[in-house]
């Protein structure tokens, strides 16, 4: 039951994009089409789950025993970068179209603060291995949810009569704000 709460907490209550405001760059950048948003979300989720496993091992078997807390950030970034490379190679081989559609945002997962943020939070909360994995999965699913919601709205927006000065990114920012407001309604759920 506790795992379920961690999951729901990461997806809805403390959604990484809409509540914690992490990973906003791909949130605005890759949310024009549902399909690419889903691909981006899946790639990020994968990176998050694998990173969760590796960073947990590193944190409790390398950093803690040897008393190296200051190495936390560089070593986590190293892991994330390697995982992103892996995903990039994998996508390039299996789905060139998605690879092209994601473009620069795929390598940019490396510097996606949502990924680093969640691994640091997982360590801070002293989650167990399984809990960390579920937390990573939740963070990824929450990220995907935010991206797909945004992409769906933006697709519909193409047919809407948006006032000229707001068309494009302007209205997207306003919608992001409203979405975030809506998600604040989940506060206190868990």
């Amino acid at each position: 039951m506790e795992l379920f709460f961690i999951f729901i907490g990461a997806v809805l209550v403390n959604n990484f994009v809409l509540v914690r405001f992490l990973g906003l760059c791909p949130f605005m950048g890759v949310s024009k089409q549902t399909e690419t948003a889903l691909g981006m979300g899946a790639a990020t989720t994968f990176v998050m789950v694998v990173t969760a496993a590796i960073t947990w091992l590193l944190q409790w078997f390398v950093l803690e025993p040897f008393n190296l807390p200051f190495l936390q950030t560089p070593i986590f970034i190293l892991v994330i970068a390697a995982m992103v490379q892996l995903v990039e190679m994998f996508l390039r081989k299996t789905s060139p179209n998605l690879y092209r559609a994601l473009g620069i945002f795929l390598p940019l997962i490396t510097t996606n603060c949502a990924v680093l943020g969640f691994s640091l939070i997982a360590v801070q909360s002293a989650y167990s291995f399984i809990q960390s994995l579920i937390f990573g999965l939740g963070a990824g699913v929450g990220f995907t949810l935010a991206l797909v919601l945004m992409a769906g709205i933006r697709e519909e927006l193409k047919f809407a009569d948006v006032p000229k000065p707001l068309a494009g990114t302007g209205i997207a920012f306003i919608i992001a704000g409203l979405l975030s407001l809506a998600f604040s309604g989940f506060a206190g759920l868990v």
Partner: peptide, 10 residues
């Protein structure tokens, strides 16, 4: 220690 651990992970 930090050099070695960082190097190993890398």
């Amino acid at each position: 220690v930090s050099l070695i651990s960082m190097g190993m992970v890398g």
